[in-house]
Amino acid sequence: MSLTKTAWAIFNQSIIQYHLLDNVDAQEENPFEEGSLERILYSKNWIDTVQWHLEDLIRDENISPDEALFLKRRIDASNQKRTDLVEYIDHYFFEKYRHIPIKTDARLNTETPAWAFDRLSILALKIYHMKIEASREDAEVKHREKCRVKLSILKEQYKDLSLAIEQLLTDISEGSVIMKTYKQMKMYNDESLNPILYQKKKQHG
């Protein structure tokens, strides 16, 4: 089985497990071996799935300001965990391919393999939820029809993205694409880089 198909199965396993509980506070029960790529992929999607539903909650028009602020900070923390896992996945690929001889005409790609798998994880969530909307009995027929069209497009995106990821990994394994890792350098959570945070710290220092 190709790595994209393996990842797709893992992502959907995580999504189904989450929706058995359907609670943003549910604890992840990762079935894969500690330190394995499969375990990391499962955790990655679990974070994405929880965050998907946090984003739903924060858009409630009747949410209180205090609850919205709590959720916003929780989403920020989730984004940081998500980024950390993506970088960890890229480190896995970097180690796997670090000894591959690089061709003289090797090119750089616009995104790393891990960020492509990040897109695949989100796509799994989109397809899962669009399937629900496309068959929701309490929705209007027009709504269901629109969602079926969108679902068809999402499925095509899945095929295209899976193929593109496989092509990228093949090119890296053959030395045609340079495998590099990048830190995202997120600034909004860093007290030394976010002016709101470091000015506030200075005022109270």
Rank of each mutant, 00 (worst) to 15 (best):
I15C: 02
L69P: 01
D138Y: 11
I102L: 15
V50L: 11
I127L: 06
R148T: 06
D60S: 11
E137P: 00
W52T: 07
D25I: 02
H204N: 13
A7M: 06
P65V: 01
F93A: 04
R39C: 03
H19R: 11
I132H: 13
I40F: 00
R73Q: 12
D66G: 02
Y158N: 15
L161H: 00
S43I: 01
I16W: 06
P31G: 07
L54I: 04
Y198R: 08
F117H: 03
L37W: 03
N62H: 14
L37M: 13
E191L: 10
Y182L: 12
L120W: 01
K81L: 13
F70K: 14
Q157E: 15
P101R: 11
V86E: 08
G175D: 06
N189D: 11
L71Y: 13
R136M: 12
Y198H: 15
S78N: 10
A114D: 02
Y18N: 02
F117T: 02
A164F: 03
L41A: 06
K201I: 07
L168M: 13
K96E: 14
V50W: 01
E166T: 02
L108Q: 07
K5D: 12
L54D: 04
S78Q: 10
I172A: 03
V177G: 00
I63G: 09
Y92H: 15
Q199Y: 07
K200T: 11
L69K: 15
Y92V: 06
D25C: 02
A7T: 00
I63T: 09
E34H: 11
T49F: 03
D22L: 08
Q27P: 04
Q80M: 12
I196R: 12
Q13V: 02
Q17A: 15
L57K: 15
L151E: 05
T83G: 11
Y182T: 12
F11C: 09
H204A: 12
K44W: 07
N109D: 14
I132F: 14
S36G: 10
L37T: 05
N79Y: 06
A9Q: 13
K126T: 05
I196E: 15
Q51L: 04
K72S: 13
P31I: 04
